[in-house]
Design a protein around this nucleic acid. Structure first.
Length: 493
RNA sequence: GGCGGCGUAGCCAAGUGGCCAAGGCAGCGGUCUGCAAAACCGUUAUUCACCGGUUCAAAUCCGGUCGCCGCCUCCA
């Protein structure tokens, strides 16, 4: 089984081979800390979280570096509006970002460098570019000369001529070519600034990623990730700066995740459809959001709607319900390997789904991290467990129990890669019930009382009264489940 | 205007040359149940936007048409 991933450089899937055996350096562009994180950030975070988890699961030693941009125009403007310092503003939003990521179950990167912590690296890199003739100073600014770099446009697959034809960049008389971009920006009075050979100023946006990735991962590293919108100009410029400065290849594989739209429209503040991570998590379980984000291939556009996220929440509930029942029944028997299990022929199909889960899951993930397909296999295994559970309920069956135990451990293993099913099923379901109960007009005690009345009626075979009570509770969104062990209840979504 | 992507059942979605076109949601029929719920079984695309071409063989490759979207400016 070989891992294949889509490389934005070539525009196709390529076999993956790290620079150093079993070691991977990956740099993912992080946030600019000036506002709350939204659904788009969630997708990028979860996608790369799963990619990194999978690479580690496969045995690679992964070094994950993710920057935080804590100085740039947007931060300066927002800080001015709010009357706080840039440092205060960026620290405030960095904190919120960390809380969002934690809620989403996204693992912290190994390193999280900040632009302001690497000013000297940045200045040195710019000096190299100037001395090699790739960059020039003008009125306290330093610009990168795109014409000097022959490979410019290789990543975004466009030529300099094409870009200029449709260019909407404003004319800047200090630039030699309109497509030249700032490595260093002279600071205006009142703006944060650092001393440099070109006077007081601050770094341009793209240079920090070159400087920090080179520092922590080396001049050439394996994977660079980010949202598709970063391909141009951000990553194109990073490549130009880095290759020009080091004379070596910069990134071997560029991986870009697709965009999120909301009800078919691009998310934007002016449209009023800007959804923050916090808002979504106030209504849905974090794993439901993860499940939603992973239900489509990471490179395709993903459309968000209430109906779709609710559907994922229901799917997640269903899986946890199955896991909960499975763990109850298999609790007495340790998970057995598949050898020696002999099952009735009618459940062979179910058992095959369980036995093949891991293999199929890895195959799907190996094919450019196809989480949508991988989830299909998980659902197959869930169905397999449910089939075996039915047999088990009819009478104790050691082989079934062993197979169920095996299936639960397999689902939990692949769940670790996806960041799903990490909660104890019992506590998950209790949590969900408490959540739904809080939105109900009835209390748990009232419900129990009504169920008790119905039990009495049923004992007398007074079906009319029993059905009336069922109906009454159904009206309040309570579904009753009768079983030989008694009546349990659930709340309809 | 330039570049790129997408169009698969009521909805979401995988599949990019060849076994009956995964999986989820919703629907319908059945098993179970006093009735239900859950679960399971069966069923729901002779067809992959449309037209033409290549091939023994195409949802999958090529050309064209229509529709939707993204990027080219800060953006995950």
């Amino acid at each position: 089984m070989a891992l294949r991933l889509y490389n934005s450089f070539s525009g196709q899937k390529e076999g993956f081979k790290p620079l150093v055996d079993n070691q991977i350096g990956i740099y993912v562009c992080g946030i600019t800390a000036y506002d709350d994180c939204h659904l788009g950030h969630a997708r990028a975070a979860v996608v790369f979280d799963v990619i990194i988890r999978y690479l580690r699961h496969r045995g690679f030693k992964v070094t994950h570096v993710q920057n935080i941009t804590d100085i740039d125009d947007k931060i300066i403007n927002r800080a001015r509006e709010k009357g706080v310092s840039c440092k205060e503003l960026s620290e405030h939003y960095t904190g919120k970002f960390h809380r969002d990521m934690e809620a989403l179950g996204v693992a912290r990167p190994d390193m999280e460098p900040k632009a302001t912590g690497h000013i000297q690296d940045i200045i040195r890199l710019i000096e190299t570019l100037v001395s090699k003739g790739y960059a020039y100073a003008a009125e306290g600014n330093v610009f990168f000369s795109v014409e000097k770099f022959p490979g410019y446009g290789r990543l975004s697959h466009r030529s300099l001529e094409e870009m200029q034809a449709g260019a909407r960049v404003e004319i800047d008389s200090r630039k030699r070519n309109p497509m030249d971009f700032a490595l260093w920006k002279a600071s205006k009075p009142g703006e944060p600034s650092w001393e440099s050979p070109w006077g007081p100023g601050r770094p341009g946006w793209h240079i920090e990623c070159s400087a920090m990735s080179i520092r922590y991962l080396g001049e050439t590293f394996d994977i660079h990730g980010g949202g598709q919108d970063l391909i141009f100009p951000h990553h194109e410029n990073e490549v130009a700066q880095s290759v020009a400065a080091t004379g070596k290849p910069f990134v071997r594989y560029f991986v870009h995740n697709g965009f999120v739209t909301i009800n078919g429209e691009k998310m934007s503040k002016s449209l009023g459809n800007f959804l923050t991570i916090k808002e979504i998590l106030s209504g849905y379980h974090p794993e439901a959001l993860r499940l939603f984000l992973l239900s489509k291939h990471y490179r395709s556009p993903l459309d968000y709607s209430e109906d779709l996220i609710r559907e994922k929440q229901v799917s997640l509930d269903r899986i946890y319900t199955t896991l909960s029942e499975a763990m109850e029944i298999s609790a007495t028997s340790a998970p057995q390997p598949d050898a020696g299990i002999s099952l009735p022929p009618e459940v062979e199909d179910a058992y095959t789904r369980i036995r093949d889960l891991k293999k199929l899951f890895y195959e799907a993930m190996d094919d450019d991290f196809n989480t949508a397909q991988a989830m299909g296999h998980v659902f197959d295994a869930v169905k397999g467990i449910n089939t075996l559970l039915q047999i088990s309920k009819k009478g104790p069956d050691q082989a079934c129990r062993a197979a169920i135990g095996f299936a639960v451990s397999a689902i939990r293993e692949v769940g670790q890669v996806l960041g799903l099913f990490s909660t104890d099923p019992k506590s998950y379901l209790e949590g969900r019930r408490a959540e739904k109960l809080s939105k109900l007009s009835l209390t748990a005690d009232q419900i129990r009382d009504l169920i008790h009345q119905r039990e009495e009626a049923r004992a007398k075979k007074d079906w009319a009264v029993a059905d009336a009570l069922r109906k009454k509770l159904a009206g309040a969104n309570i579904i009753l489940k009768d079983s030989p062990q008694g009546t349990t209840w659930e709340i309809k979504e």
